[in-house]
Design a protein around this nucleic acid. Structure first.
Lengths: 151, 151
DNA sequence: CCCAAAATCACCCGAAAGTATGATGCCTGA
DNA sequence: TCAGGCATCATACTTTCGGGTGATTTTGGG
């Protein structure tokens, strides 16, 4: 129980189990409808082997493929920054913290740079995250850039 | 031991896929046992199917790893990116992790997306950080972009 | 003057990230 | 065939983040 997994078993069940179950179902189907008994047994087995290998290859390539971002992000509206800030309810101080965070600084470094306490920076960031609707600073940077809040 | 950690896609394949396959097979048995198939035949075919599916998945992922970018539009991508990577000693896998990290994903999400364990992602990132000479992921993103490793 | 928003700070707690070390298996080129 | 790079995973540990709650002070209008 060291980490993670216990909450994700169903995810893997869906990922591996269901496709395999469908394969088994199709196997059964094909046996019911396509097979005539006799010497074709070995051909049938070969067919199954090839079929499953092909499906496996397809699945393997598909699962391992990276999912590209949503194509080219449209430039979108170049609205005045103030309106963006107002619309999101982001205060000037929060913007400052955001900018420094985007430069790769730690909360501690931001605090020292702005002459405030670490707790204050955390509070600003916490509010900022909820306003940007994100969970992590990396996401916040992404979103802020896509919104035009950051260069 | 609860084998917990979430790497090893094949482990889950064995954990969920095979039992499900066996379940399907037994279902089939209960419905078709009146037919003239021999017992061993059925199990043999099921085994072949699962085996080839597994091998196919393995082959597919391997193949896809060697040719990761079947990019639809790659007319002139002969950029010095390879040289940058080589110069910094950054491996392909590390680049993959870096890209996903820059998308705002957590280590856990990266691990699941790449079908490796959380520990593996941490290792990759740790090596990456030292190669980029940074301490935090936000710095890594900054630096990677300034180097042209990331868009 | 009074109110409300903004800014500041503290404390706690759990989760995530980062560091260090060691180990294994696969593949490739010399 | 053998060394070395790469990828994988683990364990243990420290640090940093993020979320939640509550509180005090500043400040700018009305």
């Amino acid at each position: 129980m060291s980490s993670s997994n216990s909450g994700n078993w169903w995810k893997h069940l869906a990922l591996y189990g269901i496709p395999l179950g469908l394969l088994m179902a199709s196997l059964q189907y094909s046996r019911l409808h396509l097979l005539t008994y006799g010497q074709s047994e070995k051909w049938y087995i070969a067919f199954i082997a090839i079929l499953f290998a092909a499906v496996g290859i397809w699945a393997g390539m598909r699962w391992n493929r990276k999912y590209p971002l949503s194509s080219p992000t449209a430039p979108l509206p170049v609205l005045p920054k103030e309106q963006l800030l107002a619309g999101l309810g982001i205060t000037p101080r929060e913007l400052e913290v955001l900018e420094q965070m985007a430069e790769g600084k730690s909360n501690q470094e931001i605090a020292e740079s702005l002459f405030v306490s670490l707790n204050t920076v955390k509070t600003h960031l916490s509010n900022l995250f909820s306003k940007l609707d994100v969970q992590r600073r990396t996401q916040a940077i992404q979103k802020a850039k896509s919104l035009g809040l950051l260069p």
